[in-house]
Write a protein that binds this DNA or RNA. Structure first.
Lengths: 134, 134
DNA sequence: AAGAGTAACTTGATTGATTCAAGAAAATGA
DNA sequence: TCATTTTCTTGAATCAATCAAGTTACTCTT
């Protein structure tokens, strides 16, 4: 379980974990809705707290493309990346060709100690690209 | 000037352009401060409007690392990337080894039409890494 | 150089995601 | 089962960013 991360097992946490797993790249508000369908009334604060706790513990990953609210996913540890549609905002996973972290090394890194290279691809999803092209 | 982008030349726009050029990676609030030192009182709305107009026109680039507010820079068109300090949030430029856009191609792109690969390196800046290591 | 037309700026209010704070509830370990 | 500590609830607050209406001023035309 998630007990391995020194976290207490509570209904909201299980529900949030399930919700993120079933709805990758969902924002907090959507997740609150999903959790409430599962548990009934749950405070938004609880969901925010749980998302932060799980993210800090490394069980979830928080992503936030420019202009978007925070989104969460349960795929962690595989160093994958994301492609974001400029038109509708939909997000899809893209496997990292390198596989390990960081998958890129910066040239001229100004002395920074880099531990992760986050890649966001921007473009148009299949639906939006065909719509605007036709 | 910036007249080539079909934009009227106004004092606030010149001031914002100068401010961003002199303070790369500054957030909107800081830029408002800089512009006001230059012009006297200027509405925050004007700065927001100008930043959006210049960004849309391609004269500025807006970046927003996770957990940060919007930041702007005047280096555009050279497809460079950024390294962000997890501790203090400072941002530095990193040249792209490839040089052209997009500098990476996604494997398994789900049918997306990709036009840009944005890379954000995460780590610790020289100051923060030495402080925490010592 | 003057005037019309339109884009840009000012003022003031509003939104919306996220966070803060204090008290109540519940999970863990003894 | 009880005590302790974390977590959740309730309600308010923050802050970046946007919206809206009215005024200003930049450009172009005459």
């Amino acid at each position: 379980m998630l007990r391995g991360a020194d976290l207490r097992v509570t209904r909201p946490r299980l529900a949030v974990l399930t919700a993120v797993h079933d709805h990758p790249h969902a924002d907090t508000d959507s997740l609150i809705g999903v959790v409430r369908e599962d548990l009934g009334e749950v405070s938004h604060q609880a969901v925010y707290d749980v998302l932060r706790a799980l993210t800090t513990a490394g069980l979830l990953r928080r992503i936030q493309p420019s202009g978007s609210v925070a989104r969460y996913e349960s795929r962690v540890g595989d160093n994958h990346h994301h492609v974001v549609c400029r038109s509708c905002g939909v997000i899809a996973d893209v496997d990292c060709a390198v596989g390990h972290v960081p998958c890129l090394t910066a040239s001229g890194d100004h002395g920074f100690v880099i531990d992760e290279a986050e890649v966001t691809y921007w473009g148009l999803c299949p639906d939006c690209s065909t719509t605007s092209t036709s």
